[in-house]
Simulated assay, not measured.
Amino acid sequence: MYVELRDLELLDTLAEVGTLTAAADRLYVSQPALSQRLARLEDRLGGPLFQREGRKLLVTPAGVRMLSSARTVLAELRSAERDIREIRAGRDQRVRFTAQCSTTYQWLPPVISALQREHPGTEVRIEQVAGDEPLAALLDDRVDVALVTKPDRLMERLHVVPLFRDQMVAVVALNHPWTRRSHVTARDFTDVHLVLYDIYDQSRSPAQPLPLPASSRPGRVSTVPLVTDLVIEMVAAGEGISVLPQWVAAPYTEGPNARVAAVRIGAHGNWRTWHLATRVGDHAPAVVDFVELVAARFRAGTSGVQDAPSMLPALVGLGSSS
């Protein structure tokens, strides 16, 4: 069995656009040729990667796993190509950033705008990290700054400061019985069907712990690509429940056009602490300023977060290479 780069591009494009016709237009090939290429790939892998529903293609569990690897490889290749172009041109003005378990970056555009006023021409890149391991990526110099929440032994080798706390909430359909309750407990998750991002795929090694209270025993876990809209649509259709950060769920749970409802987990909420991590030692001025701007953004307040402490004294220790 072998997989070519164009196979990875095919998977990524099909998952994004959802039909063979649209993917063929995007990749500048004929639709029959693309269909044959997909069939050959599925034959080599020994199973279907997409389920056909009319003209629309839905990713199968095997496709989700392959898509995760495809996007990681493609992102790394694109990043390497950009880096090489920057090096050849004699400029390397960049801040490489990654966030653990987050697909929501409403707070980032103002940070980038402020950074570019101070450092014109600096590019902020959101990097995808294989296996959701941003701390290892920091140590390997594949990213410069990481926003992380999961405790890890690698933190001892990095400069890590607490940034804010956010609350994980259960996300359910509007007519779900939980919407009539003040909160749910670990026992309530027994035998439920969970719909989560594929970073929680329990077949991975090592597997990421499920975002549930201790002693929870869900009956079934379905994972989907890191697309919040897809999770919300499945929950809204009654295909299961999810657990998301409150600030990620808020656009879908608040206001007259709410698609789903949020329910507190535990009497006092299920909170987690986020940290901002960098390598120990001196950093380029743009990296230092980016970290300070991110910290200031969360100190000013972000929906669904609490306890954003003053970080300037801690951040001074980052230093500068100038």
Rank of each mutant, 00 (worst) to 15 (best):
L8G: 04
T13Q: 09
V17G: 03
T19L: 11
A22W: 07
A22R: 11
P32D: 00
R37V: 01
L38Y: 00
L49Q: 10
G54L: 13
G54P: 13
R55V: 14
P61V: 04
A62S: 01
G63T: 05
M66T: 06
S69F: 14
L74N: 01
L77V: 14
A80D: 09
E81N: 13
D83M: 15
I84G: 11
E86A: 15
R88T: 14
R91T: 14
R94F: 12
Q100E: 15
C101A: 15
S102W: 09
T103R: 10
T104P: 08
Y105W: 07
Y105N: 04
S113T: 15
A114R: 11
L115G: 00
Q116L: 02
G121A: 02
A137F: 02
A137Y: 07
R142C: 09
V145S: 04
L147V: 05
K150L: 14
K150P: 09
M155N: 02
R157W: 08
P162A: 05
F164R: 03
D166C: 10
Q167R: 10
A170W: 01
V171C: 04
V171A: 04
V171M: 09
V172L: 01
S182G: 12
S182E: 13
H183W: 12
V184C: 05
A186S: 10
D191E: 11
V192D: 05
Y200P: 02
Y200N: 02
D201A: 07
Q202K: 07
S203T: 10
A214S: 10
S215W: 10
S216I: 00
G219I: 02
R220S: 06
V231L: 08
M234T: 00
A237Y: 02
S242A: 01
P245Y: 12
Q246C: 12
E254L: 09
P256N: 12
P256F: 11
A258P: 06
R259K: 11
V263Y: 02
A267D: 13
N270S: 12
L276G: 03
A284C: 02
A284H: 05
A284S: 05
V287P: 09
A295M: 02
F298Q: 03
F298T: 03
A300H: 00
A300Y: 06
S303A: 15
Q306R: 15
S310E: 13
M311H: 05
G319D: 04
